[in-house]
């Protein structure tokens, strides 16, 4: 199979627009489907490499993916087209939801419904965290690092920067020599 021609700005916008409106509860799987399987802008290995960068760098992973892919084809303009495509529709939707929440959030029936959705949303997050723990914590040192980060943030309620400043360097140092 030949690689398809590089996407235009309009195609970048359109591709990420589709990712933005279709992703419920996490958009990364949809981004992979669009980039690798449907439009073939990236090979599977290229996608994995882009994703590793975007997970390594701070900030929302999917936004970083849009920046990396957009800029690879069209520089700053490509990055803008991809990010705006990704964010425009979901932003409008959540602002509309926010407006409804402000107006009707205190109606008892609405309050009760949101309470139910909140409990479910928390469950989705619990599931994601546990899945990551299951695949990511395969060494005892990793369990200790994750436990320290959890304890510092969730139990002791230390500021994030303080916890990261201690735990992240120690974790990298601990792994340093075993990495080949």
């Amino acid at each position: 199979m030949d690689a398809p021609p590089p996407p235009t700005l309009r195609e970048l916008f359109g591709g990420f627009f589709g990712v933005g409106v279709s992703g419920f509860g996490g958009v990364l799987p949809w981004a992979r489907r669009m980039l690798v399987e449907e439009r073939r802008w990236l090979g599977p290995d290229e996608f994995t490499d882009v994703l590793s960068l975007c997970q390594f760098l701070p900030g929302p992973n999917i936004v970083n993916v849009a920046v990396t892919v957009g800029s690879r084809f069209h520089g700053v303009r490509g990055a803008l087209a991809a990010v705006v495509g990704l964010m425009a529709a979901p932003f409008a939707i959540v602002v509309a939801l926010g407006a409804l929440y402000t107006t009707y959030g205190h109606v008892p029936a609405v309050e009760a419904t949101i309470r139910g959705v909140s409990a479910t949303a928390a469950g989705l997050l619990v599931a994601m965290a546990l899945k990551m723990a299951r695949t990511g914590l395969t060494r005892w040192s990793a369990v200790i690092v994750a436990g320290a980060a959890f304890g510092g943030i969730a139990l002791a309620r230390f500021p994030l920067l303080a916890v990261l400043g201690v735990v992240a360097p120690l974790s990298v140092a601990a792994i340093w020599r075993s990495v080949r």
């Binding site: 309470r115 997050l125 619990v126 994601m128 965290a129 994750a146 959890f150 943030i153 994030l160 792994i175």
Partner: peptide
Amino acid sequence: AIQRGLAPVTVGLMLAAAYLITRAAD
């Protein structure tokens, strides 16, 4: 080294987020 070192930190942060959101929501 940085990638593999940061991965368990992220897991800990996600677990903390799940814990605190559950406490706030339920």
